[in-house]
Amino acid sequence: MKNIFLILLLTVIFTSCGNQKLSHKETVNRYYKAFDSGDFDKIKRVTHDSITMMNGDFVTPFDNNNFYEFYKWDSVFKPSYKIIELTEQNNDVIATITQKNIRNEFLKNNPLQFKVKLSFSADKISRLEELEYIDVNWQEWNQEKDSLVNWIKVNHPNLDGFVNDMTLAGAMKYLKAIELYEGRE
């Protein structure tokens, strides 16, 4: 009888330890670590079935399939994410993040530092709202982007439109455009 009680007690303890709920800060940490390591399965574990990204007036809703497409677009540029600061506000987490990648390097703003508000539904990330960019030189960013876009239109029109194509194919064209532009004489 003692053995059965002991086994039941250990089962309850191990089961409850394995099902511990993550704090919102831990969830955000896991989200960015998964992005950084390139593990979409881990991203799915901490994100809701639907996720909305907000950047100013632009609101983009995603389901898991669409979000995977965004993830693939992002991963082409070989990103590296680092959390600088996390603070909780009510049911949200405000995160200060740095992101290094090939695109930001080309656009002369690497690393890109920004604040984002992450909101939760059923303890999973359901919304990311970009709050502000820190020390970003938008003039230089736009100058580099415009130079690239205009040069590609003239010299490689088959790649035109890459800058607004948020698919894997669009990211591959963006990367090719950067490579061709940097290799020009």
Rank of each mutant, 00 (worst) to 15 (best):
K82H: 06
K82V: 08
K82W: 02
K82S: 08
K82M: 12
K82Y: 12
I83R: 00
I83P: 00
I83S: 02
I84C: 01
I84P: 00
E85H: 05
E85S: 10
E85I: 09
L86P: 02
T87P: 05
T87Q: 15
E88D: 12
E88R: 04
E88A: 14
N91P: 02
N91C: 07
D92H: 06
D92P: 03
V93G: 00
I94V: 04
I94R: 01
T96C: 03
I97N: 02
T98P: 10
T98F: 04
Q99W: 04
Q99Y: 05
K100M: 13
N101E: 13
N101S: 11
I102H: 08
R103E: 13
R103D: 10
N104L: 07
N104E: 13
N104C: 07
E105V: 03
E105K: 08
F106A: 04
L107I: 09
L107F: 05
L107K: 03
L107W: 02
L107E: 14
L107Q: 09
L107P: 01
K108T: 10
K108C: 15
K108I: 07
K108N: 05
K108P: 05
N109V: 09
N109D: 15
N110Q: 08
N110C: 14
N110F: 05
N110E: 07
P111L: 15
P111V: 13
L112D: 13
L112G: 06
F114C: 11
F114Q: 06
